[in-house]
């Protein structure tokens, strides 16, 4: 099983989404692209853990999947104009 081409395609996806973060009009579009990057990075972390054959590396992916949610919520709450 070779995982390296998979990782390269995932990085290409991340690059396209980063381009949307740079050019996107307005804050909501940037936020959507940012959330997409989160999902892609979590998937890449799981693949890399399998590729390196260090099983314990998967914990980092769980941490990211849980914590990126808080980030998204903060920016969303700012955009909708509420007080914290």
């Amino acid at each position: 099983m070779t995982w390296l081409p998979v990782i390269i395609v995932m990085l290409v996806c991340i690059g396209i989404a980063v381009a949307r973060v740079f050019i996107g009009p307005g804050a909501p579009t940037r936020l959507v692209a940012f959330d997409t990057i989160n999902t892609l990075v979590v998937t890449s972390l799981v693949i890399l853990a399998m590729m390196f054959d260090h099983v314990i590396f998967v914990d980092v992916a769980i941490v990211y999947a849980l914590l990126s949610f808080a980030m998204t919520l903060y920016v969303a709450k700012y955009i909708q104009g509420d007080k914290f």
């Binding site: 314990i56 914990d59 980092v60 941490v63 849980l66 914590l67 808080a70 919520l73 509420d82």
Partner: peptide, 26 residues
Amino acid sequence: VTPGGGFQGGAVIASGVVMLIVAFGS
């Protein structure tokens, strides 16, 4: 025995509290 430790785990739980702050209001 795994990656992590006191600082990392504490940051995870503190981020959970941060998530509760944004969801319910301070």
